[in-house]
Design a protein around this nucleic acid. Sequence first.
RNA 1: GCCGGCUUGGCGCAGCGGUAGCGCAACGCUCUUGUAAAGCGUAGGUCGUCGGUUCGAUCCCGACAGCCGGCUCCA
Length: 652
Amino acid sequence: MSELPVHAPAVSTRATAAGLTAQEVLTAAGAKDSAVARVDGVLVDLTSVVAQDAVVEQVPYASPDGLAVLRHSAAHVLAQAVQELFPGTLLGIGPPIKDGFYYDFLPAQPFTPEDLSLIEKKMSDITRQRQRFSRRVVSERDAKAELGHEKFKLELIALKGSAPEESVEVGGTELTIYDNLVGTETVWSDLCRGPHLPTTRDIPAFKIMRSAAAYWRGDQANEQLQRIYGTAWASKDDLKEHLRLIEEAEKRDHRRLGVELDLFSFPDEIGSGLVVFHPKGGVIKREMEDYVRRRHLEEGFDYVGTPHIAKEGLFHTSGHLPYFADGMFPPMVMEGSDYYLKAMNCPMHNLIYRSRGRSYRELPLRYFEFGSVYRNEPSGVIHGLTRVRGFAQDDSHSYCTKEQAPDEVKHLLTFILGLLKDFGLDDFYLELSTRDDSKPDKFVGTNEDWVTATAVLEQCARDTGLELVPDPGGAAFYGPKISVQARDAIGRTWQMSTVQYDFNQPRGFELEYQAADGSRQQPVMIHAAKFGSIERFIGVLTEHYAGAFPAWLSPVQVVMIPVHSDYDGYLWEVAAQLKASGVRVEVDDSDDRMQKKIRNAQKLKVPFMLIAGGEDVEAGAVSFRFRDGTQDNGIPVADAVARIVEAVLSRA
RNA sequence: GCCGGCUUGGCGCAGCGGUAGCGCAACGCUCUUGUAAAGCGUAGGUCGUCGGUUCGAUCCCGACAGCCGGCUCCA
């Protein structure tokens, strides 16, 4: 979003003599505002000496590389501030990230909010001192000696060369340490690849955001460190704009809007991660479901229904219990059997398939339902509607021959993308989740089947023309998957739909069809959730629209407001006409004054307010006020009704 | 699940070792004339739950539950 402002093209020039610094070369070429330089394609400090004839490019602060460097430099200042305030605190890593940076620490005590204010102040002190970042190449041996007390840094040095991913600390062919100099005195040092800004004073704008815990090197089995997040920008204005965007995002948080618009809640008495939809949220849910069900029928799916629980054996047959038991609610015992709440619908659909013999003529056979599933999500991951313990998937399973599989996957992808567009989402990319070959115990099936299935999905994904991002190791235990990631109105991405290619469950359930030659063959099944989960989708839509749903989804489509209570009766008559056309309309005949009624309807983000006073009554008209505050006055009632009905039908 | 923070009427917030206030919403009355807040009054809380410390706990301590921010995980 704000990461890529329009700027003059970066200056690119050549070093005309030996012994010049990148800064000197760029200044001679008239380039100001450089965070670092790119010399022959490599980012280096402005203070580094460049070879004669080297190509030296300016890297502006506001460029992606420039931002990464200034954020990384800010991370260094953070680490320095922490170690000065809390001596003995060990350092983890401190990379730049989207919008900012973080640094991981192992302090004696976790940081308090007061600590964070102190740290931010200390950082300001350090930046004011204009400390110079000075690069020094060290041998591995010297680095180990110098950093002997920093056990995490030692681990990074040991990983150098063996780690597949390069980090901001080590990488490339040599180890470097950056010293912070005041005059000629070194006041602080850190193992770092660089490059950095020339001085701490060159960090244009930063702010400490929050602290949180994080596992060392992202592994739950490792020690937990304290991470401090900050944000940093190329100018104070950029920082202000970033903070404003955060505020905007908070305003459209679906958890907040859920309360304000009376859509849903999460009663403690029911349990964590279990939602109840209130009548207004129920309208949105019903409209969505009705539309999605209709579209499935149009696309050749059969609507089916299955229970919420099943005996243990079913989930053994499907293979879920061995691989997914931790993700399921614990069983309940009845009449000597263990019953599980289902965490997925496929096993039950398989039983419908298996209920009688199947012919190749029936394939592809497509079952669809809003299947309620329950998953034992760890308490710490539950989040509003986007991560719950009980939810409905708009789940389908397509049974087809191997030969039909590519076409069926394509069919599903086309269907899904069209459906998401119908709900106002139109910016997507795809993710291809594949098997992790180093963890064979987490996946079932032969290598050959995995290769085939993955190839089919990859080809279909490429055929959409959308960006395709690999997700190694992200596959389900029974097969690879494509997931559709949608970007919302303010650029955040959400995982929505999934399409999974499954050759394992048909084997486990011994699913068969009789082929044209009379032989019995095994079908493959394609799992597909279009919205992923109804609950998550409602949460995402709420944020996408900031609660201002399009008219067809709005819980209340029209609020009628009399200028004076004398006109209540007239509005009730108009409302009756709207109701007769299927419009969800309310008449505000409360004791509030007109202005207050407008305010109330505006806060509820009702798409149409219809206001009427003496002038309208005389003319047989009503006056529109729209959500954006604009008006359209004196519209004949029949026209007004037609306009509203048209807006709803067009799903605008 | 892990780390930290938080939990006071429906919602948003004060308060703080001597058993609680404000605004909005609700309810009642008086109002109502053209596009974002009329006035007055009334009612509503065993301060998340359980235990401990104390003469006395909403306040201090502990456990549990829930929520929030992250990590890990995921539709």
